[in-house]
Write a protein that binds this DNA or RNA. Structure first.
Length: 188
DNA sequence: GCCAGGATGTTA
DNA sequence: AACATCCTGGCG
């Protein structure tokens, strides 16, 4: 297994989002296989935070590829993105679903004992399971010993429309492993 | 199984 | 005002 470094996130955000399916994410004793992501492009994508938020544009300017972009959605759930920044394009990859590996017991406790299939099947669910919150915004988690990612592959990756957005809703920038039992929603 | 509604905080 | 969500409760 090969550790992912910041240069993994110097491709186009859409390529990064596709490549992350099958990789594994490690976070302070818990880990999971990434089975669902979405790409957001800083330029030309009206659904990206950069479209309306100067703070998102400032975040890109002042952070490195691979840094965590974490924000509170609907006042309720933290969502975990990874900054993509390179000559090929800038933007974010939203991590939308994992298959639990290590630390399932701790994740279940944080999630209030929900059934296993709902533990990390959704962007808000997985941050709660892993204990990711606002304090992690801007963290370069790839460089910490207890956090990081390993390369992996998934031969059957599929693409679909992004979920829950109204702007640029026609772009097929959601990626996933359609055979996973841990998706936030099935692919059609 | 599907759908409606509400909780909740930050940004602009 | 909008929002990259999730849970519950009402149906059948």
């Amino acid at each position: 297994m090969e550790t992912i470094t910041a240069d993994f996130f110097t491709l186009d955000p859409v390529e990064c989002a596709r490549n992350l399916i099958g990789c594994s994410l490690f976070w302070k004793g818990c880990s999971g296989r990434i089975v669902e992501t979405e790409a957001y492009r800083a330029i030309g994508d009206d659904a990206c935070h950069t479209f309306l938020r100067p703070s998102a544009r400032e975040f890109i300017a002042s952070h490195k590829p691979g840094d965590a972009y974490v924000y509170l959605n609907y006042g309720v759930h933290w969502l975990f993105n990874i900054l993509v920044k390179g000559e090929a394009g800038e933007g974010f990859v939203l991590i939308r679903a994992l298959e639990p590996m290590e630390g399932a017991e701790e994740m279940s406790r944080r999630r209030g004992g929900v059934k296993a299939s709902l533990l990390t099947a959704g962007p808000g669910r997985l941050t709660q399971a892993l204990g990711i919150g606002g304090g992690d915004h801007g963290a370069s988690f790839l460089e910490l010993s207890e956090c990081g990612m390993l390369r992996g592959t998934c031969p059957g990756v599929v693409a679909g429309l992004r979920i829950g957005i109204t702007k640029a809703a026609d772009l097929p920038w959601r990626f996933g492993d359609p055979s996973s039992a841990c998706l936030s929603r099935p692919f059609k």
